[in-house]
């Protein structure tokens, strides 16, 4: 019996069972189908490592589970990167709002020290800690990650979110305090 015919006889008949496992993991028909395909591709590629006589269903189920969690980790990483980049885009939009409100030079023109301190104190602790460490204490992302025991991606996410919240608060403050040179909506887009 060739490896291929053995695979066809032993592994392929388990497709319906693995499809049920995949569906239970993904709860989505299309994702489940993709996962089943990925499972059998991997199983075929590593067929020679399958221990003959052992439970093929368990072996395939383990491959399916691993493929699912790897995929989820990849997606969560790419979502995190997307979120971080969206925070950068938000900073540009906020600049547009500041410009429309006539306060786009507020950081260079005004002494916002006390207002910045108040805005920092008003942040949630998890955002406040990261922004104080990076932007006030001059820690690197890596140093903060190590000090707080969180991944660098989390440092970035919290930092950029904190900056956006600070910018929004300061923009509102500058307009409310009458620093604007033009009247325009202050709400960031």
């Amino acid at each position: 019996m060739t490896a291929d015919s053995e695979f066809a006889a032993v592994a392929l008949p388990l497709l319906p069972a693995i499809a049920r496992v995949a569906h239970a993991l993904t709860v989505d028909d299309a994702d489940a189908d993709d996962l089943v395909q990925e499972t059998f591709l991997r199983a075929y590629k590593h067929w020679r490592t399958f221990e003959r006589g052992s439970d093929c269903k368990s072996w395939l189920s383990a491959i399916c589970r691993n493929a699912f969690f790897e995929q989820r980790r990849r997606e969560s990483r790419s979502t995190a990167v997307e979120d971080q980049e969206l925070e950068s885009l938000a900073a540009a939009r906020l600049h547009n709002s500041a410009r429309a409100s006539g306060v786009d030079n507020m950081f260079s023109r005004l002494d916002l020290g006390p207002a910045i301190a108040r805005a920092i104190e008003a942040l949630e602790p998890r955002y406040r800690d990261v922004v104080v460490l990076v932007d006030v204490e001059d820690f690197s992302y890596e140093q903060v990650a190590e000090a707080l025991g969180i991944p660098i991606g989390t440092v970035r996410s919290r930092l950029y979110r904190a900056r956006r919240q600070l910018q929004e608060a300061l923009l509102a403050f500058a307009v409310d305090a009458g620093y604007a040179t033009a009247s325009a909506p202050i709400r960031p887009e």
Partner: peptide, 15 residues
């Protein structure tokens, strides 16, 4: 604009 914001935050340390 973003850099001037970061400079302002760093300068707010005494506050």
């Amino acid at each position: 604009f973003a850099q001037s914001f970061l400079d302002a935050v760093a300068a707010a340390r005494p506050h």
